[in-house]
């Protein structure tokens, strides 16, 4: 009776050890919830301290934060566009406006990059919407897929 119990406990321990050996191999390529990150950082490379009042044609300096948790190396592009309150943008539809600046980068899985960027806004007006759109390259399709967006509101003045 006792030797049966000991036998089953020993076999149980061995089965657990088998699980420990196999699990890392089976789970190495599994990604539970793949996602990408996009953030716009201020002039000091931190959240906040964004320019709200800029001169038309003047250089705006910011930082772009892009993170990759897609489970594999990714090729990203960030387009900077300028629009206004009337124009629509969503997680599915990008802003219908010309690209004023574009940045591309390759990021390994689990990594992130903070890149200094600079651009100028020429359209004078209040509540101008500077939109940053993240696109991810799809090697199967041979093109970029729109992923997500962030925005800053700015008043663009002549002086």
């Amino acid at each position: 009776m006792i030797d049966d119990e000991v036998k089953f406990v020993a076999i149980g321990i061995i089965l657990v050890m088998m699980g420990v050996v196999v699990y890392p191999v089976l789970s190495s390529h599994r990604v539970i919830e793949p996602f990408s990150e996009l953030g716009v950082l201020g002039q000091d490379g931190k959240l906040g301290d964004y320019p709200h009042q800029v001169t038309a044609g003047g250089v705006v300096k910011l930082f772009l934060y892009v993170g990759n948790d897609e489970g594999s190396v990714q090729y990203y592009r960030v387009d900077v566009k300028v629009g206004d309150q009337e124009q629509n943008i969503s997680d599915v539809v990008p802003l219908d406006a010309p690209v004023i600046s574009s940045y591309e980068l390759v990021i390994s899985n689990g990594a992130n990059t903070t890149t200094p960027i600079s651009f100028s806004v020429d359209d004078v007006g209040l509540n101008r919407r500077v939109v940053f759109e993240l696109y991810r390259y799809d090697a199967d399709l041979g093109g970029f897929n729109y992923q997500l967006w962030a925005q800053l509101w700015m008043n663009v003045t002549t002086t």
Binding site: D3, D4, K7, A10, I11, I14, M18, V21, V22
Partner: peptide
């Protein structure tokens, strides 16, 4: 190889475990 070794150990324990324990 690890799985084979562990599987063989499980079989050996099942066959000779009681004798070994006593």
């Amino acid at each position: 190889v690890s799985l084979v070794i562990l599987g063989a150990s499980a079989v050996l324990v099942y066959i000779y475990g009681g004798r070994l324990f006593w």
